[in-house]
Simulated scan of single mutants.
Amino acid sequence: MFWLIASTIAAAFMAVTMIFVRLKAAKKPASVKKILLPPLFMSTGALMFVFPPFQVSLLQVIEAMSVGVVFSFFLIKSSKFEIRGNAIYLIPSKSFIFILFGLLVVRIVLKLYLGKTISLGETSGMFFLLAFGMILSWRIAMLYKFKKLENQLNTKNAL
């Protein structure tokens, strides 16, 4: 029970941190580096799978990543860019906060439900994969949107 409460508090802290990071990022121009670094940094967490308690089956990997991709649609829809001057900025979405906390609540409910039948290590591994699948697909979509605007900006500047 302690680990469930501790991990829930940690997830809530990360969600609040994400909100502040996102609001701060909207004040500076976006870049490919700023879009791609978060999933790259997060990927180091996959080292948990070296340890047997965290290892999951291929079916569990597919399930967790699939749910993450589905969850990412909400983040993708709330992520928009705009050209200001000669730079591209991420537009802060008013719905982002609600989406992030909504996804957090769904993840907690799923964790409580799955925690009854799956070990703590496997649950941790699956929720890491869910979050990674969500962030990776969200960031790939952001990169696509960014590159589209970057091409528009380059075409405009070339004229």
Rank of each mutant, 00 (worst) to 15 (best):
M1A: 13
M1F: 11
M1Q: 08
F2I: 12
F2D: 09
W3L: 07
W3I: 11
L4Y: 12
I5F: 12
I5N: 01
I5A: 12
S7N: 14
T8H: 04
A10H: 05
A11K: 01
A12L: 09
F13K: 04
F13I: 15
M14E: 01
M14S: 10
A15W: 05
I19W: 06
R22E: 12
R22Y: 14
L23D: 10
K24T: 08
K24L: 11
A25C: 02
K27F: 11
S31E: 02
S31P: 08
V32M: 11
I35M: 08
I35P: 00
L36T: 03
L36E: 05
L37P: 04
L40P: 01
L40K: 04
F41E: 03
T44H: 09
A46W: 13
A46M: 15
F49Y: 03
F49S: 00
V50P: 02
V50C: 05
P52M: 09
P53W: 11
Q55K: 15
L58A: 13
L58S: 10
L59W: 14
L59Q: 10
V61W: 14
E63H: 06
M65I: 12
S66I: 01
S66H: 04
V67Q: 04
S72F: 13
L75T: 00
L75F: 15
I76M: 14
S78A: 14
S79Y: 03
K80L: 14
F81E: 02
E82G: 02
G85F: 11
G85R: 07
G85E: 12
G85N: 08
N86M: 08
A87G: 04
A87M: 08
I88P: 06
Y89D: 01
L90Q: 14
S93P: 07
S95N: 12
S95H: 11
F96G: 02
F98I: 09
F98A: 04
L100P: 01
F101Y: 10
L104M: 09
V105R: 06
V106F: 13
I108R: 05
I108E: 09
V109W: 11
V109G: 07
L110C: 07
K111A: 09
L112F: 12
K116C: 11
I118Y: 09
G121S: 08
S124D: 05
S124H: 06
M126G: 06
F127M: 00
F128E: 08
L129S: 00
L129K: 00
L129D: 01
L129R: 02
A131G: 14
A131I: 15
M134G: 03
I135L: 13
W138D: 04
R139Y: 13
M142H: 04
M142G: 02
K145P: 05
K145A: 07
L149T: 01
N151E: 13
Q152D: 15
N154M: 15
T155H: 15
K156T: 09
N157L: 12
N157M: 15
A158R: 10
A158Q: 08
